[in-house]
Write a protein that binds this DNA or RNA. Structure first.
Lengths: 201, 201
DNA sequence: GGGGATTGCGCAATGT
DNA sequence: CACATTGCGCAATCCC
């Protein structure tokens, strides 16, 4: 199915997938972002976000929730850490009140944990932003998926093309050898008969 | 840097990235999974959702981590849905005590919403599983990233190689034409002098 | 600054 | 049952 001849179209699309330079690619899996803060809290933390009201409570109750990740530099997928550190990564990530952070490089960040900007979850505005971002994310991932697919196709196509070119080179080379041979023969003999030139090709 | 001659190494790696067939690729961005069941509430919806925040305060404290997903069949990136459904996805997902399910198709599912199999979050066992999965996910994604990178490199490399091959073909063709021309000349004239064969190349 | 685009990450469902 | 994949939402960032 599909005309085999239209190879160029894929390339065309592929090229368009890479407008300029892909910005700066991380290239380095780890350390691309310090990750310390990373993501997700369970969610609720924001409600208070350093405010007093909700009170201390969350401070406490939440801790538990405060979990996951802490951006440990897990340099490998070593599972051993699991056993060694049961709650291992658990740390929360609420950037705000997270007090349990390692305090390394305290000066690197802006440093404004409390009194940040309580966007308050459940707010309509928040949901709107989230929803919009979700749409953008889906779109972006779709795009990425397509791009990857195109790259794969392109690679396959180029591979085929390569083989054909190599074949052609082989052919031409052989043809050339033949002609050279013929010529050298003639040269040696001074050329006399009318050997058909194209015959051996 | 790196010897330019080692082109094959990348290919080598690339090939190893695709053991067999990539299973069945979605190919269809939407509708890949029906997703219907997921749910999620915005987390706090449990806490009060209209309560006077501080109030009971997430009384339920435990729900804590409830999160995302709603899996609405968003057939496109249409943003209009945003306005139409403000809290849209919010719903919770704790499979356990979530009692608010729609009861449609009561007979299709095993039907055991409650008393299901409360894996109970916060259980050590649950955390262990989660943590393990997280590790696996990171590993898998890393692998995917590497594979993509290799494919891109491979494509670029093949492209270069292609250009070289094309050049070579051009060269050979020209050389061939030259020889053919010489031969035809000799053929016509019966060949006499000793024109150097390689001269014109 | 504000909004879409990217990206790392955890969760859960599902595949192997 | 454990690990691998994958779709998804969240939050941080990037980049206009």
């Amino acid at each position: 199915m599909m005309s085999d001849s239209r190879v160029s179209s894929v390339i065309q699309e592929w090229v368009s997938s890479y407008p300029g330079q892909p910005h700066s690619q991380p290239l380095n899996p780890i350390a691309s972002n310090q990750a310390a803060q990373s993501s997700q809290m369970s969610q609720m933390d924001m409600i208070s976000y350093g405010q007093s009201h909700t009170g201390i409570i969350r401070g406490v109750t939440d801790e538990r929730v405060a979990e996951q990740m802490m951006g440990l530099p897990y340099l490998s997928y070593d599972t051993s850490c699991l056993s060694s550190n049961p709650n291992s990564g658990t740390s929360n990530h609420h950037q705000t009140h997270a007090g349990a952070q390692q305090d390394f490089s305290p000066f690197l960040l802006p440093r404004a944990p409390v009194t940040k900007r309580s966007i308050s979850k459940d707010s309509a505005e928040y949901r709107l932003r989230r929803e919009r971002n979700n749409v953008a994310v889906r779109k972006s991932r779709d795009k990425a998926r397509r791009r990857i697919l195109l790259t794969q196709q392109r690679a396959l196509q180029l591979q085929e093309e390569n083989q054909k070119l190599q074949m052609k080179i082989g052919q031409l080379t052989q043809e050339l050898d033949t002609l050279k041979h013929i010529l050298s023969q003639r040269h040696l003999q001074g050329g006399e008969d009318g050997t058909p030139q194209e015959s051996a090709i």
